[in-house]
């Protein structure tokens, strides 16, 4: 069957994800670092459930209770000017 895109933002194909898993990636984080899947502007909002299912299928493990791909702030893309506009340094707060 034809190949297909899994991560729309970073244009990552299913074959690339399967290949990354064959060569060692076993978690969402490892897949993300290897293929950039889930690292684009939507921050995995579209492909994350797919990645979870693909990993679960190929590793034969249940989808973990806590999502392995943790969300970090900003949870939405933020322009630098919007950040500068707040006039504060939030780095040390969390």
């Amino acid at each position: 069957m034809s190949d297909k895109i899994i991560c729309r933002c970073e244009e990552v194909l299913l074959s690339e994800i399967v290949e990354a898993m064959k060569t060692g990636a076993q978690t969402e984080k490892e897949l993300k670092l290897k293929t950039r899947a889930g690292m684009g502007i939507c921050q995995g909002r579209t492909c994350r459930p797919l990645l979870e299912q693909i990993i679960s299928f190929y590793t034969n493990k249940k989808i973990p209770q806590a999502s392995n791909l943790t969300f970090s702030i900003p949870v939405r893309p933020l322009s630098l000017s919007a950040l500068a506009h707040t006039g504060k340094d939030y780095k040390n707060e969390n």
Partner: peptide
């Protein structure tokens, strides 16, 4: 949010 079904050509 909606779960995707990847299909060749879905972009």
């Amino acid at each position: 949010a909606e779960k995707a079904i990847p299909v060749p050509g879905w972009t």
